[in-house]
């Protein structure tokens, strides 16, 4: 694997429904460390499946996939990889409603080696970065949609991941709030030198990336 490429995928295939649905039908992809990639494509084209493969939430049937020097086809326990290398931002923020904002951001650190004081410090640092430090003790149900997504971004970054995987992070937000979230993601991408892979429907959102991949029928049709 080249030093430059943090993601290397070759001929990756994933089927659903006993092979009737070919979600990924031979993906070839290389992504450089620190790159900002947008993945576009119609519903059911396989873009979210591709994101899940990179994030080791699911396993492919064929091909090869290496992320941050780890062969995801070989490794059996992928939870440590997810905890150390990947930060997820979902369309629906997916915060846990009965925990405070601070506790939500601390969740990924439970598998790490920090003590509770260090965890709290790191979570507050991230909440500061997304501009929500003063809401640390608030319940997420009392936040606006944009604020919740900012908490989710803080949660994704808390373990110093090398890759942020964002699945339509602005899909549930109005355009103005969406822009704030995109700007925040892009700023953090620049500042933390983290690789950002974002699935989106919106062409204007995609254009903010260094490179746009168009996925169709489980294959990458074009890269620009």
């Amino acid at each position: 694997m080249s030093e430059e490429n943090i993601i290397e995928i070759h001929n990756l295939k994933k089927n659903y429904d006993k092979g009737n649905i070919k979600a990924l039908n031979g993906i070839d992809l290389k992504i450089k460390r620190g790159e900002f990639i947008s993945i576009m494509g119609p519903s059911g084209s396989g873009k979210s499946t591709l994101l899940n493969m990179i994030g080791a939430l699911d396993r492919a049937e064929e091909g090869s996939i290496k992320v941050a020097d780890i062969d995801l086809m070989e490794k059996t326990d992928l939870s440590e990889f997810r905890s150390q290398e990947i930060g997820f931002v979902f369309q629906m923020h997916n915060l846990i409603p009965n925990l405070t904002v601070l506790e939500n951001v601390e969740i990924p650190m439970y598998e790490g080696k920090l003590n509770s004081e260090q965890m709290r410090e790191r979570a507050l640092e991230l909440l500061e970065a997304v501009g929500l430090r003063e809401k640390a003790e608030t319940n997420p149900t009392k936040l606006s949609g944009g604020e919740r997504q900012r908490v989710a971004i803080a949660r994704a970054l808390v373990n110093h991941p090398s890759i942020i995987l964002a699945d339509e992070p602005t899909g549930a937000l109005d355009s103005k709030t969406g822009d704030i979230i995109l700007k925040l993601l892009k700023d953090l991408h620049n500042k933390e030198h983290v690789t950002l892979v974002m699935v989106t429907h919106e062409p204007y959102v995609a254009k903010m990336a260094d490179r746009i991949l168009n996925v169709f029928d489980g294959k990458i049709k074009s890269s620009s």
Binding site: R82, I86, E111
Partner: peptide, 12 residues
């Protein structure tokens, strides 16, 4: 869904 999130953030 919440359990899915916990898995996504790396919980064993």
């Amino acid at each position: 869904r919440e359990i899915g999130v916990l898995k996504a953030v790396g919980w064993k």
